[in-house]
């Protein structure tokens, strides 16, 4: 009580304050919330990592691939009659509606990723453009899509849709884990394990790894490079679409033209933290970034600190391990 009161009127002299009792008190809820967000970051981070692994390209437009998925979720659910209030539907119709929204979001995001690749990057590859040109194009595409959505939907966030009221499932150390957190983390982890296995075991996955390692030799060995690139973009898009559903579930008011940008930057940071180009690194980086941000904001007393703490830790980690925690190579990784 005393410590929280001390926090209540921040004077200029003590604008940084370490509120350890608050962190201890909120430790487990911060952990579960952090993991939930981390899982969403990780799904988006996979899109950055895969494309980087194959093309050595930081696809800044990936945040817009994600936000298009969010709009897919929003339109599907509004069309189905969801609103800000808790829907009065039976269990199976909610399931059916959510699955539909998931499919629409995944298709919308994958389609966006596909179009971006075909329209923006492929022509550059044909002309052997230098890498800097790709980077600028990526940023340009990101802003173009963002402001197209702005012109279409205006500056305000869409109405927040409630899909279902999260219910407590079980109690861990006095902290309640709700159905929403559980499903987001589980679904995200399963999808990531699946992606990981797909990359390491399937024929296409082997192709992706081959192109990542050495595109020219891979082509000589009979790998269709163009098809591998497209597949990579589409996988990234599908995962971003799934992340979009979880994101809208968690943050219903997040559907906004600029809504993907910060999340995209954080997902990219997660990919770098874990080791860009490394599938398992994206998972680890995402979860870590979510946790660190959440612990940091509680320790420092305000959610305004989330991003500061997350990015300071990113910088510190990169100082020690510039290649990220798990290293960078998609091609050489045993994954």
């Amino acid at each position: 009580m005393l410590s929280t009161l001390a926090m209540s009127v921040p004077a200029d002299s003590n604008w940084i304050n370490f509120d350890v009792p608050a962190l201890i008190q909120n430790f487990w809820s911060a952990t579960f919330d952090g993991l939930t967000f981390g899982a969403i970051y990780a799904l988006v981070a996979l899109g950055y990592t895969l494309v980087y692994g194959v093309l050595n390209l930081i696809n800044f437009a990936h945040s817009e691939v994600f936000i298009v998925g969010c709009y897919g979720v929003f339109f599907t659910l509004s069309f189905l009659g969801f609103g800000p209030s808790v829907p009065n539907l039976d269990f199976w119709s909610i399931v059916l509606n959510l699955v539909l929204a998931l499919v629409v979001a995944m298709v919308a995001s994958a389609l966006t990723a596909f179009v971006v690749e075909r329209v923006a990057y492929k022509p550059l590859r044909k002309r052997n453009a230098p890498r800097l040109v790709f980077l600028i194009t990526a940023i340009g595409v990101s802003f173009s899509i963002q402001y197209l959505i702005f012109l279409w939907r205006g500056p305000n966030p869409e109405v927040a849709l409630t899909m279902f009221r999260p219910t407590p499932i079980f109690d861990v150390f006095g902290t309640i884990i709700d159905s929403q957190q559980l499903v987001i983390v589980l679904a995200a982890v399963v999808m990531m394990v699946f992606t990981d296995q797909f990359i390491s075991r399937s024929r296409t996955g082997r192709g992706i790894r081959a192109v990542a390692q050495d595109p020219d030799t891979a082509t000589l060995m009979g790998v269709n490079k163009e098809r591998i690139i497209i597949t990579t973009f589409i996988i990234g898009g599908l995962l971003a679409g799934a992340a979009a559903l979880f994101y809208v579930m968690r943050i219903p008011s997040g559907v906004q033209y600029s809504g993907g940008f910060v999340l995209g930057v954080k997902a990219f940071a997660a990919a770098v933290l874990g080791g860009i180009g490394n599938v398992r690194g994206a998972l680890l980086g995402g979860l870590l970034l979510g946790l660190i941000g959440n612990y940091g904001q509680i320790l420092l007393g305000s959610s305004q600190w989330t991003d500061v703490v997350a990015f300071v830790v990113l910088v510190l980690v990169l100082l020690v391990r510039p290649e990220g925690i798990l290293g960078t190579s998609l091609g050489r990784s045993k994954a």
């Binding site: 009065n88 399931v95 959510l98 998931l102 009221r165 219910t167 499932i169 499903v183 589980l186």
Partner: peptide
């Protein structure tokens, strides 16, 4: 992937029936 998604979404809502 789609099948997995479906299974997972159904988990999501199992809990929600009690929480209306």
């Amino acid at each position: 992937a789609a099948t997995l998604g479906m299974l997972l979404s159904s988990c999501a809502n199992q809990a929600s029936t009690g929480g209306a």
